[in-house]
Design a protein around this nucleic acid. Structure first.
Lengths: 251, 251
DNA sequence: CCATTTTGTGCGATATGTCAACAAATACAG
DNA sequence: CTGTATTTGTTGACATATCGCACAAAATGG
């Protein structure tokens, strides 16, 4: 892969798209320029191109993204066989245990939900396929980080901002590395209200036939209902059944 | 917006991303070139750029999209206030009626789910935010098409392939235009197993304070449980409550 | 081993990015 | 209100990156 084969225009356009967030759903040319680092003239051309292609709307002053952009993401979700494969297993698991379960994959220092079977509202934020949470403070994130080479996991932790989400959130990279080691050894990870007060969860890796961790499975329970010590005993067996079934499906 | 302000490279890259579908999750350079119409050299540069930026993986032969692409879509979903606003209303509605409810928006001739509260598995396909269905054969699609100027709706119907999904699917544009007129007049649309055998549904438009239709709300029920004639009587009142609440929220 | 397909690479023509200047809007102080 | 300062959007010139073609190299498959 040579420098000469990189298309700057494409990179800049994607960068421009990513500057649109919940905080800034509507941006002017200058705002996109500022938040992306692109020259104003370049940002303008990117945005006009996106508008021309139907990925953005333009009222003469502000740009907003259109649902068409979702096609890009769905193109990606659709290419993943995992969601369709695990959804039925997840539905059954969730039914059986009476708790919400989810499957996510790792993208950098974030976990991305790809399937979910919700039972009750325990979390204040609503999670859906495509939703993201930091890996370091989630049970699924920890089992997936634990599957990486130590140096790589450490690098991700050092690079990402480790935000204190609740008073229980562990934010020292060292402490998290220790948790990863524990998760690696035990084959599962436990979280006690580190993402959100009132939420405890247990996660286990989903591996393919070659033994590579490709995703994580979790069960989330209200802290008022279960102690952390009980999670493994109560939920792990059923989770292991799903692990085994999925491994068999991933030839 | 002049021709000179359109960036070809960006357009080509986005086109390349969209060639990845469930049927073709892994594509070689030549395959992307064929399915996008891009020159092989151009497709190669697009793909290498995407790989370089982390949006794609490359094993030397095949390219696959990475979860990073989902960020683009999520960037878009995150900019929409609608999902967060309707989700609680949807949860309550679904609970109250004991049936699955969803909210979708219109993108061309397709509806895109943006929020959903599932109660039971009635549909074989699993719908999630970002999922798409043709507008012409869905209840939500019909109420949203009904809100467009007639000519525009007709143009969308004529341009889109009207696939016969079940033996009940209406596929003649004329018949669908008549359904749209009925939906416009009544303020809701009914579907009897046109998307999938065993599924009936009712949808109503969600309008902002200015009266513009911005989305649609639906209730899906198993055909074994309810007759089409009963849907409006049983579900419409609760749906109208949601309509009113949302209108109030959309200043 | 050759035929066929697929991938990689120079090259000229063209499009694009950068930068700077300019125009137009906006903010603001007196 | 007015004139000034500041921000924002637009345009032009020029250096450079990119496109698409044609061809070379490599892989694939009988």
């Amino acid at each position: 892969m040579l420098e000469r084969d990189i298309m700057g225009g494409l990179a800049k356009g994607l960068l421009a798209i990513e500057t649109f967030t919940a905080d800034r759903p509507r941006q002017s040319i200058a705002e996109v320029s500022a938040s992306s680092g692109l020259d104003r003239a370049t940002a303008r051309r990117c945005l006009l191109t996106l508008a021309h292609l139907g990925y953005a709307d333009y009222d003469g002053k502000y740009f907003t993204l259109t649902p068409r952009v979702l096609r890009l993401g769905t193109a990606c979700l659709a290419t993943m066989p995992l969601p369709q494969m695990v959804q039925p297993l997840l539905d059954r698991l969730s039914d059986q245990l009476g708790e919400s379960s989810s499957v996510s994959i790792l993208d950098g220092a974030e976990i991305v939900y790809v399937a979910r079977a919700a039972q009750r509202k325990v979390m204040s934020i609503s999670l859906m396929p495509g939703s993201r949470l930091p890996a370091f403070c989630t049970s699924m994130g920890r089992v997936m980080l634990a599957a990486l080479p130590e140096a790589e996991a450490r690098a991700l932790l050092d690079a990402a901002p480790l935000a204190q989400r609740t008073r229980h959130t562990r934010t020292e990279p060292g402490a998290i590395m220790a948790e990863l080691a524990l998760a690696r050894q035990r084959g599962f990870a436990l979280i006690d209200q580190e993402v959100e007060l009132g939420l405890r969860s247990i996660a286990a890796p989903l591996r393919n036939a070659r033994g590579a961790t490709i995703a994580a499975l979790n069960i989330g329970v209200p802290a008022t209902q279960r102690q952390v010590e009980d999670l493994a005993r109560l939920y792990l067996p059923a989770m292991q059944t799903v692990q085994a079934e999925l491994k068999a499906m991933l030839r």
